[in-house]
Design a protein around this nucleic acid. Structure first.
Lengths: 338, 338
DNA sequence: CTGTTAGCGCATTCAA
DNA sequence: TTGAATGCGCTAACAG
């Protein structure tokens, strides 16, 4: 198969430098106290000359750790993940670790990701929010690995959990819609929310709010679009031409909510007078829409806590910490669109 | 450091099944012809009972390959990368490989990525388009590894290159702007384009077009925003209030161009009559703006070719293929905004 | 059909 | 301060 490209080994470096492999290892790992300055320089020169690069497999095998962590996301192209990746990378840099990202966008990929993680491709992992397709059983299968799960659906079980109060915040947003007279509230969901296989909070919050206020559940008002700006735009446009004209749109993502605003404006619908719009996520982008987007989310995108939890686990030397829970406060953020 | 979680090994599985480690290996690797059905089942049962998972380090060390490939991107949150990740994952699935993604969003991260790649964390890699911070020298340092570089700035040198004709397409777009009477064309660039450290085609195409048509280069018309929708919106808004009011905006990304359209509309500026807008990338999202976005890009997002090149290299058994070049046709796509 | 054995490249103990 | 020897867990050649 793969061209097994031969790379120089410590043995060859040792030979060239006229020392033993042990000495090479000491030099390469900065055990300065164990080797003389002369030797050190000779080894470094030899390594340089041969273009030596250490083998991560051999090193990980010997060390029983990879010095890498993994970020598991549901898709690339989600703005919030960007910040998560940055915050995790910062923490990883500080710990001298690398960061690998895995994209899980189908059940098959979830299996593959779990396999790789169990095979110890990294020393720990953060499961980003809203990675569907990863079942509780799969999470449990990973519990040997230092793990931080960002989900409200998970309970700590050998791993840490980072939660949000989005449930309550969504409820508050929906209550607000009803309190301001909205009766035909549309829901713009993620694809996996609409198939009904995977339960999700935002859809559940929507249904609960309807029930709580005695409003009818109208299936024709529940449409697709939260993962895809174009789909969201089209869904809302279609809604306006449909049999039940909504007087509010509750979108499961800010991206979808922003598309909804564009669609409504293009259709000449007044926001929020005729149709109110609420998103979820508190993207910065919501500040530049007209009207500015009313949403539900954290006050600021900040994932340092999650990263910290992960590295506390990854670097833990003795007993593993018990499963911890951190809760990030989400609130209803009222701007102009509702 | 890391809790070196002890996992069962083939040896233990072998002991429990009452066979040798070789037999376990045969069973686990599907060498059906080498082992009897009875034994096979016993081994599988033992592995199951112990919760055996193979060690990727040990396996990679022995095999001299990881059965993983790497996707190197400049940031998460770029819509085009989404499709690239999908196309690469499809090819990887077919080859039984895993996909790891690395985010390179600073020179330091570029170094780290190059290190990991050289340490053979994967059997090959695709460098996505517009990953700045990766120097030609670093690319050369990686040339031992099967590599596909998506860049117009690179020449094949032990690796394959996937190019686009965006140069010509940008030129055509800019010529069109000038031909339709635009004289004060603003440029909305990526941050790394504006610092001047890293040359980029789109900025170069912009400057070349100005020169070609004898238009003044006006530094105040060159602004930031191509990486960030909010920044783009603000840049354009600021431009409208500035000393030199543009009559066209050439944005280095469609995301920025879309923000430009929003900003112009919010300011009551007619598009394209008063100000024309052109983006780069041909995102689907450009179809839902008002007016629809005029852009430069490929007819469709499709990265199968790049993925194919990579796996041809990764799976190549004999001689490595010489560096190949594939060129993707980009065109000027005229819709409503210019 | 199954077992024995020799490394893959590296870090580390123990002697010198 | 340095070197020789050992083994991390796995696969594959060879022997039986």
């Amino acid at each position: 198969m793969a061209n097994p490209l031969r790379r120089p080994t410590t043995r060859e470096v040792a030979a060239l430098a006229g020392v033993s492999v042990a000495t090479v290892s000491y030099v390469l790992n900065g055990k300065v106290e164990r080797v003389g300055e002369q030797t050190r320089r000779r080894v470094l020169a030899a390594a340089e000359e041969l273009g030596y690069v250490r083998s991560s497999s051999a090193r990980s095998l010997r060390l029983r750790r990879t010095e890498r962590v993994c970020l598991v996301v549901g898709s690339i192209g989600v703005p919030a993940y960007d910040q998560l990746a940055r915050d995790l990378s910062d923490a990883a840099d500080a710990a001298g670790h690398g960061v690998l990202t895995m994209v899980v966008d189908s059940p098959a990929r979830a299996d593959k990701a779990v396999d790789l993680l169990r095979q110890h491709v990294a020393d720990g992992a953060i499961i980003a929010p809203s990675v569907p397709y990863l079942s509780p059983a799969q999470l449990r299968a990973l519990a040997d690995l230092p793990l931080v799960v960002m989900s409200n659906a998970a309970d700590p079980d050998g791993f840490d959990v980072v939660r949000t109060t989005e449930d309550a915040a969504c409820a508050e947003a929906l209550d607000h819609l009803v309190a301001t007279g909205r009766r035909r509230i549309a829901f713009l969901g993620h694809r996996h929310e609409l198939t009904g296989e995977l339960p999700t909070e935002r859809h559940a919050a929507y249904l609960a709010a309807l029930d709580r206020h005695g409003l009818d559940r109208r299936p024709e008002l529940v449409v697709d679009g939260a993962d895809d700006r174009v789909a969201a735009y089209r869904s809302v446009t279609a809604l306006l031409a449909g049999p039940v004209r909504p007087d509010a749109v509750f979108a499961a993502s800010d991206r979808a909510a922003i598309s909804a605003i564009l669609a409504l404006r293009d259709a000449g619908v007044a926001i929020p007078d005729e149709v109110a719009v609420v998103g979820v996520g508190n993207l910065d982008e919501g500040r530049i829409t007209r009207p500015p987007l009313t949403t539900v989310g954290p006050p600021a995108m900040d994932f340092h806590d999650a990263a910290r939890l992960l590295f506390e686990r990854v670097l833990a030397t003795g007993e593993r910490p018990a499963g911890r829970v951190i809760t990030t406060e989400w609130t209803f953020i009222r701007r102009g669109s509702a």
